[in-house]
Structures are given as C-alpha cells and as structure tokens.
Amino acid sequence: MLKLPSVPGATPPRPGTPAAEPKTKLDNAAEAATAALGWLDERTALSGTARFVMFRKVPKGTNWFYTLGTSTMFAFMSQVITGVILAMFYDPSPNRAYESMRYINNDVWAGQFVHGMHRWGATVMVIFIFLHMGRTFFFGAYKYPRELNWVIGVLLVLLVMIMAFTGYLLPWDQRAYWATAVGVNIFASAPIAGPYLGDFLRAGPDFGATTLSRFYSIHMLVLPGLIMGLIGAHLYLVIKHGTTAPPWVTAELDEELRSEEV
C-alpha cells in the first residue's frame, strides 16, 4: 500500500483497533487528494488564506443586493476573455480597423457573438458598477472603517468610464468616430488644461493615425492592469472588513446590559 504522510488534524487510527472494513478505491482516492492538498498547504500555508477568504461571518439581512459587486467582477472577467479573443483579430490602424471589425463580424467563427458579448458586456458592466455604487451608498456601507474601499471603488468607476470611452472608438465606424470626436472635445473644453488634454488624447491637433493606436493601448494594456490591481485591493478590504448589515437590521439589545447602562 502507498504510504502517505499524515494529514494535520486527522485522527490517527488507534493501535490495536482492527480495521472495520478494507479500504475501497474511493477511500484511497480521497486519501490521496487530502495528501496532495496537505503537501501543497505545508509549503504555501494557503489553507489559512482560503479560510480567510471563504469562511466569513455574514450579517443578518444579507440579500440579493449584495451580489452586485460580484456581478460587476464577473462582467469584467467576461470583458477580459472576450477582449483577448477580439484582440487576436483586431487591427488598430486607421486603414484596417473597420475592415478587421467587418472580418470579425462576418467571417470569424462566432465572431459576431464574441463582439456582441464584449459590446453588450461593456454596457452591463457600467450598469452593474453604478447599481453596486448605489447599493453601497444607500446602505451606508461606505462609512467608517470602509471609507478607503469607497475611494478605491470610485477610482474603479472612473477607470471603467475611461474604459468605455476608449473602447467606443475602436470599431472605427461613423458612430465611433463622431462620438469620440465629441467626447475628446468635451475633455478639451476644460479651461487651461483642456486644450493640452485634447492634444494628448488625439496625439495631435486632429484625429490621426496614432489616435486609434493610442486609444487601443490605453484600452487593452493600461486600464485592465490598473483595474485588476484595484479590484484586488477592493476585495482584500471587503474580506478584511466583512460586509455591512442592511440599515433596517438593528442590533438586538441585551436587557441586562440595558439596565446596566442607566
């Protein structure tokens, strides 16, 4: 028989006790799996992290509104996956961008579906992130000690808005072009810094060959990295603080303590 190391916490069989039944294949498999996990845990101490992440106390009154943050994160993951697939076919040059989108939609297997997932997924993500923000606000979940997490969340909202803005240009059709022209001009209408900001976004005074590649680089390299990092910090703080109870759930008063108070 395979000699496996003992699992921490498992009760060793007492000596002299006769084995009740011979071990089945299932028992062996379970033992092997436990041993493998034990080997990993001994070298990484991941079980502590796993307990920290997964076994948390949840307040009374937790309801469906508490799923909006996770929904936003799943929308983001869907955007990452479909975005990576689209990037395999997309060509961010002004003479080829529209053609490559046409190719994705008409010729690539399920290309229109993946493009649609990315396009509608972007809308879904923006809607979810605002619903999540509204939930946090109306449930008062931004209050002490969670202010920093609110600040990180607001940064994430801004990054998602920039993500949506830069992504809108990429199909390079009439709607994309003019919507982005208007958007850049809104940026440029800020006093003093505006004109320079406009030049920075366009990479010059007019929309040109490098405007598109600039937006593409911001959209698929700069922002996803920042968003992933901030989601990590956001999740860490959520797990560290735990979630809040809804405002209509009040603490039960202990009658004895109540009399002590007076």
Partner: peptide, 8 residues
C-alpha cells in the same frame, strides 16, 4: 491628416 486614409 495625411496617412489616415478616408478618416483624415
């Protein structure tokens, strides 16, 4: 904008 095709 030269070099940007129809868009320019």
């Amino acid at each position: 904008t030269p070099g940007a095709g129809e868009t320019g």
